[in-house]
């Protein structure tokens, strides 16, 4: 029982409940179904990417290029559709393919050429963003058909459409990391890559798959984003990688690898979103909100570290 209580995810859950309670007391417009669903809609892009990012960080790696892949794929949807004249579904398909390829390229650089993930994805962060800007020529593509807006602005059974997609990706993430050999390999790599290798685990293939998935989901987030804002620009997703990494780390995934859960990431994500929204609703300005989120991140990690000394988890 005590072991469960002092898990990082449990502490985070308590923090989340406290935040929810405090925010609700501050503003009567906060704890309404409409507001909460709307907030869920707004956090979907970050949330989607945070799922594969959890895997990436559990292996002890990092993927800084996700925001640039998002920007590149967003631009490609527009270019394939408007400039190349393809039907929109085909443009979306090709864009997803491009995102997957971008992630695969990351994986190849990291596994085959043994470049540390931080450096490899820092390089592709610049590379993919540069491609996006070059392809778009600083022009945005607009005027998407009505049906496309359903994904980003519509509802299905009273729930924002993209939330269903997010739920699907999140469930897949939970299942894969928790209940499959693939997930156990992921943890093993994070704990000790050399040990995993000598145990005959498919280290390279697993890492390659994870970075490829990260690219694919970033492309998926790009489609949702384009649909939500009904335009494409090359600066889309700029800096989103930091929000994603913050959510994952706040969720208890160790930046050194080997520890972390998708559930934790989800709670971290929700905590960030309700802090932003709740503080804004109770009249705190944008810059103040950023300070609070930074402080919460430090406090959460500190508590978890201090309590961690008393457990053998």
């Amino acid at each position: 029982m005590t072991r469960i209580l002092i898990r990082h995810e449990a502490i985070l859950g308590i923090l989340f409940a406290v935040a929810l309670f405090v925010m609700a007391a501050q503003s009567d417009r906060f704890l309404t179904t409409a507001n909460l669903l709307n907030q869920a809609r707004l956090m979907t892009e970050v949330g989607l990417i945070a799922i594969p990012m959890t895997f990436v960080i559990v292996t002890g790696g990092i993927d800084l290029s996700v925001g640039s892949i998002l920007g590149l794929c967003a631009i490609l949807v527009g270019v394939f559709w408007q400039n190349a004249g393809l039907p929109l579904p085909a443009a979306i398909g090709l864009s997803l393919l491009a995102g997957t390829a971008a992630g695969f390229a990351n994986g190849l650089i990291i596994t085959r050429f043994r470049v540390p993930p931080l450096i490899a994805t820092l390089a592709t962060l610049a590379l993919y963003r540069g491609l996006a800007e070059g392809i778009s020529q600083a022009r945005s593509v607009r005027g998407y058909p009505e049906w496309f807006a359903v994904l980003g602005r519509g509802e299905f059974l009273g729930i924002p459409t993209q939330l269903w997609l997010f739920a699907l990706v999140a469930l897949a993430g939970i299942f894969l990391l928790r209940f499959t050999a693939f997930g156990r390999t992921t943890y093993a790599i994070g704990n000790s890559e050399a040990a995993a290798e000598f145990s005959g685990l498919p280290v390279e293939r697993t890492k390659l798959l994870i970075y490829t998935a990260s690219g694919f989901v970033s492309a998926l987030a790009a489609i949702v984003f384009v649909s939500r804002v009904s335009t494409t620009r090359s600066d889309m997703g700029n800096g989103i990688e930091l929000e994603v990494i913050t959510a994952v780390v706040l969720g208890g995934t160790s930046i050194f690898g080997g520890r972390g859960m998708v559930i934790g990431t989800l709670i971290g994500l929700c905590l960030m979103q309700i802090l932003q929204n709740g503080l804004s609703l109770s009249g705190v300005r944008g810059d103040g909100t950023t300070v609070v989120i930074g402080a919460v991140l430090i406090v959460a990690v500190l508590i978890s570290n201090i309590l961690g000394r008393f457990s053998n988890d």
């Binding site: 707004l42 892009e45 804002v229 889309m236 700029n238 800096g239 989103i240 932003q276 804004s280 944008g286």
Partner: peptide, 12 residues
């Protein structure tokens, strides 16, 4: 940033 600005409008 377009996304952050949209979130601000939405919250207000």
């Amino acid at each position: 940033n377009i996304d952050e600005q949209i979130t601000f409008v939405d919250n207000y």
